[in-house]
Design a protein around this nucleic acid. Structure first.
Length: 208
DNA sequence: CATGGGATTGACT
DNA sequence: GTCAATCCCATGC
């Protein structure tokens, strides 16, 4: 099965963010079962705007962002979560697509095992990967995956499945940021139950 | 070297 | 609706 080549990512980050919708993230950890899911939500980040880590320039933290396209940029958020991005644009330009939600495909039982229980109630399937911190936990992606080649793995991204050739994509503003909040650089599959909250205004909220 | 701030989540009022 | 958990790293002295 093929994976997306580096050339796919060496383009304007907004294009890549739209076209990654419907593609498949697959992760085979060294000691665990493979898991995968269809990308249903992304956000674009680019060095030209202050919400992007690369806005601060080349530092140890942003080294991966300025490196070759088609690599994984994984960083720790709020001291707790690992967030997974695909590095885009030509080498030397700091830009990436944040993968915000997946529709689980393979290894769903493994995802339940990694996500465990939330308080008193069991996690629902549409909540397994409905957020950038949730999906890395469900797949087992860790900080050590930062800089990994998305073409070679262990984190891989595969082209759109036939049933996802023309996903209906809606845009909105990005989530959880305090700078450049007006940019509508978030992309979601319209009506998909696995998209994270809050849903874009343009998106009719599917039932729980 | 000390400090402060998150591209979040889950629990709780 | 509010809030704490928790750690990497950027910044400033």
């Amino acid at each position: 099965m093929q994976t997306l080549p580096p050339d796919f990512y060496a383009r304007p980050v907004l294009e890549v963010a739209r076209e990654l919708i419907g593609c498949v993230v697959e992760y085979v950890p060294g000691d665990g079962s493979p898991t995968s899911g269809v990308i249903v939500e992304t956000e674009a980040y680019h060095e030209c705007e202050p919400a992007c880590h690369a806005f601060a320039g080349l530092t140890p933290r942003t080294r991966t962002l300025f490196g070759p396209p088609g690599r994984a940029y994984v960083y720790r958020s709020y001291g707790i979560h690992a967030l997974f991005n695909a590095v885009c644009e030509p080498e030397g330009v700091g830009a990436a697509v944040l993968i915000r939600a997946l529709e689980p495909l393979d290894g769903i039982e493994q995802m339940y095992a990694r996500r465990g229980m939330s308080g008193n109630g069991a996690v629902r399937e549409q909540d397994l990967c409905s957020g950038p911190g949730k999906l890395t936990q469900a797949l087992g992606i860790e900080l050590s995956d930062n800089g990994g080649d998305l073409h070679e793995g262990p984190v891989r991204i595969r082209p759109r499945a036939p049933t996802w050739c023309e996903p209906n994509v809606v845009g909105g503003t990005r989530i959880g940021i305090t700078k450049a909040v007006e940019l509508r650089w978030r992309f979601c599959v319209a009506g998909n139950r696995h998209v994270s909250r809050p849903r874009p205004l343009a998106m009719a909220s599917p039932p729980d």
